[in-house]
Design a protein around this nucleic acid. Structure first.
Length: 385
DNA sequence: AAATCGGGGAG
DNA sequence: CTCCCAGATTT
């Protein structure tokens, strides 16, 4: 969805031009005046440039909640097609509550952080059973639902219920760090506390959701991490970082340590058009998803216990089908893929052991099951689908 | 406070 | 390659 064309002429009336006396201008305002100016400038700017996003077309609690869960640590552009497909298949909370978890996971496949799909399903059932299909409107009640933390509760309460509730996400944290010159490492407890206090102070009684959305929109489109467009910012004249030449230094974020490498072996067994897939236990990595069985192992020889478990004996010919690299946020998986063919009529193993709860011969795309991107890479490496 | 939990897009 | 995204939850 392309951003709406910016009406430059109107924007110029709002955006203060570069001004050497900016520091003095900020200092001349009382704190309350500065806050009022921030809210006013930001909302006026947002009214002009707001992107046309699918979840902005229906601000009902179900659509807001669904979009906010999907948007957790996930880019807008990535979410859009998932959101549209999801709403088409599950048009309301009752439809979602009446589905099977495996179909929900299927609709979530490729989006990542699959625990979100499970908490989504759990919340749909709870809202249907306990609240008669109506989401609670208070942030405190929303916060009790699975998968809804401080940010998401504030987002739903303000956007869908017009409650004066603040929110702080990655965008807001960056905007505040620059706007108010917060030097502290942005993820520390102290900084997070400050950010929420500022958000509480600023969020207006009048259309709080619009203000919250404007704040995030500014962080996403103007006050970006790499190449902030200060010349197009409605808050330029009010920004501490801009006035002190520290825009690129803020927010302060300490480097994250590099992720460990984990070597694995996956086995792709075919039986005619079907593939042996195993369902991972809920709770951990890729919980509830189906995949070709794999195990942490430094070599194929080290994975012989898994091969035995899936019924690969001396009579079954295996070939090395290649290697797959898959990077997660906290580890890097390097998977050696082996492939083979099993005679027809062979049953799937009843027990595979952790982390798998069961196994079956399935078609990865046709079955009503969730499949991770890693599993798709492994299947692709083995050839065909 | 640190670790866990996906995947991809931008520079 | 690095960074980080409309975070939540557990340890």
């Amino acid at each position: 969805m392309p951003p709406r064309k910016r009406p430059e002429a109107q924007l110029d009336l709002l955006v203060a031009r570069a001004d050497p006396g900016r520091s003095a201008a900020i200092a001349a305002l009382t704190p309350a005046q500065r806050d009022d100016a921030i809210v006013g400038q930001l909302v006026a700017w947002f009214e002009l440039v707001a992107r046309d996003l699918p979840w902005r077309r229906r601000r009902d609690p179900y659509a807001v909640w669904l979009s906010e869960i999907m948007l957790q640590q996930t880019r807008v552009e990535t979410v859009i097609p998932y959101f549209n497909r999801f709403l088409e298949r599950f048009p309301d909370v009752e439809a979602l509550a009446g589905a099977e978890i495996d179909e929900v996971l299927k609709m979530w496949s490729g989006l990542g952080y699959y625990r979100r799909a499970r908490v989504l399903y759990a919340t749909a059932r709870e809202v249907t059973a306990r609240y008669g299909g109506n989401f609670p409107g208070e942030a405190a009640a929303l916060r009790e639902l699975p998968g809804i933390g401080a940010y998401t509760a504030g987002a739903i309460a303000s956007l869908a219920f017009d409650q004066r509730e603040p929110l702080v996400d990655g965008n807001v944290a960056r905007v505040f760090a620059r706007l108010f010159g917060i030097d502290e490492e942005i993820r520390t407890t102290g900084a997070v506390k400050r950010l929420w206090e500022i958000a509480w102070r600023l969020v207006p009684e009048e259309r709080p959701g619009r203000f919250n959305e404007a704040l995030m929109e500014l962080g996403a489109t103007v006050c970006t991490p790499r190449d902030p467009q200060c010349g197009a910012c409605p808050l330029e004249a009010l920004c501490v970082a801009r006035a002190s030449g520290r825009v690129m230094e803020l927010p302060r974020i300490d480097a994250k340590k590099k992720v460990p490498v984990v070597k694995m072996v996956a086995v792709v067994l075919r039986r005619g058009p079907l593939v042996l897939l195993a369902r991972r236990e809920e709770g951990g990595l890729f919980g509830g998803l189906w995949e070709p069985p794999m195990v942490e192992a430094a070599s194929i020889d080290e994975a012989r216990a898994l091969l035995a478990a899936v019924g690969v004996g001396p009579a079954i010919e295996l070939r090395e089908a290649g290697n797959v690299k898959h990077v997660l946020s906290h580890k890097e998986l390097r998977v050696a893929v082996v492939a083979g063919t099993i005679p027809g009529k062979t049953k799937a193993p009843a027990v595979l052991g952790a982390p798998y709860e069961k196994a079956a011969w399935l078609h990865p795309d046709d079955a009503e099951i969730g499949v991770s991107t890693l599993a798709r890479k492994v299947l692709a490496a083995a050839g065909g689908t």
